[in-house]
């Protein structure tokens, strides 16, 4: 009975109540992969210095860390390009012409599978199955799936990747719609028709980061990530957002599911809440329209 109560108490404990120091002292097995994942997400690869640092701080031997880092395909010990191109060579993709696609990608990029272009734009790798066999041959670029790829379409895919695959076609994409939001505290509208972004009134807030303080205009189109700002916000910076009317800090209790930064809540006109990640460049957001949430 007592063990049940203990484990229940554990789950309610805040993460930062000293357990971390305990872990460092006794170095419980576990947590290594998450640490490596964080480094990989930050740098795009696992720099040698960072692996040495993990070894030094956790007391784990470098051999073990290196073994894990080289075991998993998700980790790379060499710098990767800005765009990751994965060509599927699983059985289904293979019989549907996957090798020809991979070869065409190698030809177009001028590198072999597993290599990175000299300008650090593309890393090409082959994968053994992506679980999308009915769509084969499949090519994945930065998490976007291209199905039934033909060799003639390879050039187009790479061109799209160069332009930025996350850039959405605002005029044609049906999933994009405008929202109108207001401050969660004073309920004053944040819409700014004088500074339109994507031809819609922008969402205007005040941001501060470092010792800079200024305005930030965010596209009100749900699905567009375009912004404009008084001071250029460096990538991955976590900013504090303030309501320009009541000057209260807009901060919620939630943490971004993508990067762990605080989420900034706003009220959506017509009912519901939208939360956006406070980290520059992170696309984490939650839209909650009266109980139904879309991530």
């Amino acid at each position: 009975m007592s063990s049940v109560a203990e484990s229940a108490g554990d789950s309610h404990r805040a993460p930062d109540d000293g357990r971390r120091e305990d872990d460092a002292d006794t170095f419980l097995p576990g947590g290594l992969i998450s640490a490596l994942e964080e480094i990989q997400a930050r740098y795009g690869y696992l720099p040698r210095e960072q692996l040495l640092e993990i070894a030094a701080t956790t007391g784990r031997s470098l051999v073990d860390i290196y073994g894990v880092a080289t075991f998993y395909r998700a980790f790379s010990l060499t710098p990767r390009g800005r765009h990751l191109v994965s060509a599927c060579l699983g059985t289904a993709c293979h019989v549907r012409g996957g090798p020809a696609i991979a070869q065409e990608l190698e030809h177009q990029l001028g590198i072999r599978a597993g290599q990175t272009t000299p300008d650090n734009e593309f890393t090409l790798e082959t994968v053994n199955c992506l679980g999308a066999c009915a769509l084969g041959p499949v090519v994945v670029v930065d998490g976007h799936y291209f199905s039934n790829v033909r060799t003639a379409g390879v050039k187009d895919i790479l061109e799209k990747a160069r332009r930025g695959i996350d850039r959405v076609e605002i005029d044609t994409d049906q999933r994009i719609f405008p929202v109108e939001v207001s401050c969660a505290r004073c309920n004053h509208s944040l819409m700014d028709p004088r500074h339109p972004i994507d031809n819609y009134p922008s969402i205007r807030v005040t941001v501060s980061f470092g010792n800079k303080h200024g305005w930030l205009a965010i596209s009100s189109l749900y699905g567009s990530y375009n912004t404009a700002a008084e001071h250029e916000i460096p990538s991955l910076t976590i900013v504090d957002m303030f309501c320009p009317h009541c000057h209260a800090e807009m901060i919620g209790a939630g943490k971004c599911g993508e990067c762990g930064a605080p989420m900034v809540p706003m009220i959506v006109r017509g009912g519901g809440m939208v939360q956006i990640c406070a980290r520059r460049g992170c696309k984490g957001h939650i839209l909650d329209l009266g109980g139904t949430s879309i991530e």
């Binding site: 031997s61 470098l62 051999v63 073990d64 860390i65 290196y66 073994g67």
Partner: peptide
């Protein structure tokens, strides 16, 4: 703990991390 397994499958090998003297 100077040497260990590296990689997996066909490319699995034994050696020091980064192939430098441990």
């Amino acid at each position: 703990k100077a040497i260990g397994f590296r990689g997996r499958g066909r490319t699995r090998s034994i050696g020091t991390p980064f192939d430098i003297k441990s």
